[in-house]
Design a protein around this nucleic acid. Structure first.
Length: 219
DNA sequence: ATCCCGAGGG
DNA sequence: CCCTCTGGAT
């Protein structure tokens, strides 16, 4: 009952949230479309401040024209910008995608590196992108992916008081079992898109409302 | 006007 | 810490 919930530790609540999310979204996966780790990296860079749905509309033409790191490394920046324009921030993204692919070719043998430190050395790649690529590209769980949804829901659910994504990630890494880190993120993202939306959260149908300090529950 | 699977620079 | 980069959807 609410008595035990009131004194439940953050860790206990985090685990309960994880269990409910796994039951609610049993088939949740990465919603970006890609064929190779390089394509996953590119799609993830493109997903910054952009819906995955929008990313998936530009990547088919992009990857048909430039399917791998060498071709992206040698692409004309203008053509790259045109192909990815609708995802926003297209100048930075084009520059970063090309810069990352050039470094992948020159320093990593044309393959996406599988070490966090090496990934973070690529332009346009920070913890969020690196976590996505490691988890979905290679099955390596190094951290918790903290995107805008994970940030918003972690706050609403009372799992962290931090606002800096790096500090939020640190809190979530303490609260959740390591093998479940990406399971948690991917399902939080699903839930953030479908129910716990930024503007009008649908608390009335939310499976987590009973463990959520921010839930708006009608009497 | 606000938000979307952010990152880099000041 | 702050700001900027960007277009599309709501």
């Amino acid at each position: 009952m609410s008595i035990t919930r009131k004194w439940a530790t953050k860790q206990q609540r985090a685990l309960e949230i994880l269990v409910i999310l796994e039951r609610t979204y049993p088939d949740a996966t990465c919603s970006l479309t890609y064929q190779t780790p390089v394509q996953l990296l590119v799609a993830t860079i493109l997903s910054a401040q952009c819906t995955d749905e929008r990313v998936n509309k530009v990547t088919p033409a992009l990857f048909a024209r430039f399917p791998d790191a060498p071709s992206l490394a040698n692409a004309s920046i203008e053509e790259l910008e045109t192909l990815i324009r609708s995802t926003g921030f297209y100048r930075n993204k084009a520059k970063n995608i090309q810069g990352a692919c050039q470094k992948i070719v020159s320093q990593f043998g044309g393959e996406v590196p599988q070490q966090m430190e090496q990934l973070l050395s690529l332009p346009g790649v920070a913890r969020k992108t690196a976590n996505v690529v490691l988890a979905h590209g290679f099955g390596i769980i190094q951290g918790v992916t903290v995107d805008t949804h994970v940030k918003r829901l972690s706050g609403r659910l009372g799992l962290t008081e931090q606002t800096d994504p790096i500090k939020i990630e640190r809190d979530l890494m303490r609260l959740l079992p390591q093998p479940q880190w990406e399971n948690f993120s991917i399902r939080i993202i699903y839930h953030g898109r479908a129910v716990c939306k930024a503007r009008k959260p649908d608390c009335g149908v939310c499976q987590l409302a009973h463990v959520c300090p921010a839930a708006i529950t009608p009497e």
